[in-house]
């Protein structure tokens, strides 16, 4: 009799434990799925922002903006005469 009671108790206990673990696993699984979805969403957002940044940071756009607001010239090799001209025009601006 004692054995039956003990086995029933053990079986019930294991069943409870299993149920509890099962529940915990499902909670964690749900959390993982949610996190994966959030992660994918964030990845998509990141691609969007990267693409937006690529557009804003494109050589064409920077060239356009620097011409419009800073009056900068693109870097290139220059001849000595042009260099002197540049220096004189710089002085002119300073004055």
């Amino acid at each position: 009799m004692k054995k039956i009671v003990f086995l029933t108790f053990l079986f019930s206990f294991l069943l409870i434990l299993l149920t509890f673990l099962n529940y915990k696993i499902e909670v964690i699984e749900t959390k993982i799925i949610d996190t994966e979805i959030i992660n994918k969403k964030l990845e998509k957002d990141l691609v969007f922002f990267k693409s937006e940044w690529e557009y804003l940071n494109s050589p064409e756009n920077i060239s356009h903006l620097s011409k419009k607001h800073l009056h900068h010239k693109p870097a290139e090799l220059i001849e000595f005469q042009h260099f002197i001209k540049l220096l004189s025009s710089e002085r002119h601006i300073d004055e």
Binding site: P59, I62, S63, S66, L70, H71, H72, K73, P74, A75, L86, L87, E90
Partner: peptide, 8 residues
């Protein structure tokens, strides 16, 4: 470096 160059 003192000149207004920009590299892109």
């Amino acid at each position: 470096g003192e000149l207004n160059f920009v590299s892109y």
